[in-house]
């Protein structure tokens, strides 16, 4: 639908990829661990490997949670826009098909947060 307006109404979006100084936005959520109140937003170079995302970017962010050290990464289930998805660990974010403002989530089977409360 168009905005009801007195004249032509169209604008450049504020969050185009080129505004992020060579990075693109990636959102990441950890299922069943809502102690982290919301998914995170990261500005990342598209050339970064998925492995670097998991092994370098995520640990300082999620490490506070006692479950994080217990994750069996081989068993982790990944989702992109809510659909099951298989990342290639040694490929870049770009090669993994992760575009600006994509959202991925991971589920860690057997780990359901503090006292199983999904916290």
């Amino acid at each position: 639908m168009a905005v009801a307006a007195i004249r032509e109404y169209s604008f450049t979006p504020l969050d185009l990829e080129e505004k992020f100084h060579g990075n693109r936005l990636l959102y990441v959520g950890w299922e069943d661990h809502l102690m982290f109140c919301a998914p995170f937003a990261f500005p990342l170079p598209s050339s970064m490997t998925f492995r670097d995302l998991v092994e370098k970017v995520l640990p300082p962010v999620y490490g506070y949670h006692p479950d994080f050290a217990r994750i069996d990464w081989a068993a982790v289930q990944w989702f992109k826009s809510g659909q099951p998805w298989q990342p290639q660990w040694d490929e870049s974010l770009e090669k993994n098909g992760l575009r600006h403002k994509d959202v991925i989530r991971f589920r860690t089977p057997g780990l359901t947060g503090l006292q199983g409360s999904c916290s």
């Binding site: 639908m1 168009a2 905005v3 979006p13 504020l14 969050d15 990075n23 936005l25 937003a41 500005p43």
Partner: peptide
């Protein structure tokens, strides 16, 4: 979805910080 042109202009603090 009813007025996308209005909300694509949103000044989202997180994105503004990253910009």
């Amino acid at each position: 979805e009813h007025e996308p042109e209005k909300y694509v202009q949103a000044w989202l603090p997180v994105h503004q910080i990253y910009q």
